[in-house]
């Protein structure tokens, strides 16, 4: 896997941090909103979905990057989708083998990782142009960023909507859960709140650039 490094293929901290902060898939690029809104009713669901997506992202980017010079560009999308679908099927079986309860909680959204635009986006925009190690680091950053995004939503929604975190009661008997937060509209409310917060945090350094 040790390909000769070219000038633009140097691996910096930004290769990893790009997905975590500057290009965070949830808070900045607002990609993959379907699982983001649908499965984040609890912290554990959000975390599992994030880990599953990260696994698919990293493995498919590794494979795609390794064969990037062999795949003719005319058939690249079809090839990528086959590879992504393969890893999604692997994750599907693995989750069933680990916990059926989790499998039912995540439902169709495991299979829908196939069409998560973060993954095909990374494959097309990054893995198909960079050597394996760099692609994997970049994909891992994106995956971590996505997982952080899902966890931020899932944790907030579980705390507000059920008074729990990871199923552990936080406020005791007398807490009246804010039920709407674990219902579909709550996903939008919490996502909106986080997007606002992120935009505020990012706007400070960005103003210097006249943006």
């Amino acid at each position: 896997m040790s390909l000769p490094e070219q000038a633009d293929d140097s691996i910096t901290l930004d290769t990893f941090l790009e997905g975590v902060w500057r290009q965070n898939p949830v808070f900045v690029m607002v990609l993959g909103m379907c699982p983001t809104l649908a499965v984040t009713v609890s912290a554990i669901n959000a975390l599992s979905m994030g880990v599953a997506t990260t696994f698919v992202l990293v493995s498919s980017c590794l494979l795609i990057s390794m064969i990037r010079n062999l795949v003719p560009k005319e058939v690249r999308i079809a090839t990528y989708i086959v590879i992504i679908a393969t890893f999604v099927t692997l994750v599907d079986y693995l989750i069933q083998a680990v916990s059926l309860k989790l499998y039912e909680a995540l439902g169709a959204f495991i299979q829908l990782i196939v069409v998560n635009c973060i993954i095909l986006g990374r494959a097309e925009a990054h893995a198909s142009k960079h050597p394996p190690l760099k692609s994997v680091i970049n994909a891992l950053g994106m995956g971590v960023g996505f997982t952080i995004g899902l966890f931020a939503l899932g944790g907030t929604r579980e705390i507000l909507g059920a008074g729990n975190l990871f199923g552990i009661s936080l406020f005791g008997e007398h807490f009246q859960p804010w039920v709407v937060m674990v219902l579909p509209p709550g996903g939008f409310f919490v996502l909106g709140g986080w997007l606002l917060l992120f935009a505020l945090l990012r706007s400070k350094p960005a103003t210097e650039g006249g943006h």
Partner: peptide, 20 residues
């Protein structure tokens, strides 16, 4: 290319299915 990729993926999927 597509044939080889599909074959490798097929082996991976069947392997995962059988082992889980």
């Amino acid at each position: 290319t597509m044939g080889v990729v599909a074959c490798v993926c097929g082996v991976l999927i069947v392997g995962a299915f059988q082992s889980t």
